[in-house]
Amino acid sequence: MQDRPTYDELLAAVERFLDEEIVPNSEGARRFHGRVAANVIRIVRRELEREEEQLAGEWAGLDGLLGPAEQPQGRSALRDAIAARTEELCGRIRAGEADSGPFRAAVLAHLRRAVRDKLLVSNPAWLEEKTS
């Protein structure tokens, strides 16, 4: 286990440095890229906070669609296995199995959750749609 500050505490410092020192003191492309950099830090912080829970949720969702399978140990193995099972799901969609009926509804519900999880990390504001 590492000493304090934690990775999140360190990243918070980088984020503030970019937002409060680099962006206001730069112009043009550098200013814009300073904003992009601060946003990338925010994405990474949210991902580190949520990844474990989100991977477990996505695995459970794939179990529901494709049948239960043994969950691999370790985050990297789990990511690879989720990609492989998602590719399997893509194959079933291409074969027309999700064109209609209960499987379509289940696939749409699973994807809503999985894509919502991605947006909670990359751009939470996207989920708060303004409607008239």
Partner: peptide
């Protein structure tokens, strides 16, 4: 800086997935 911008656009794919799911 431009490379970083390019890479970060990869995380915008989910926005279009979300819109497509809503439409479908």
């Amino acid at each position: 800086g431009a490379q970083m911008e390019l890479g970060s656009i990869g995380r915008r794919i989910a926005e279009t997935e979300w819109e497509l799911l809503k439409l479908m």
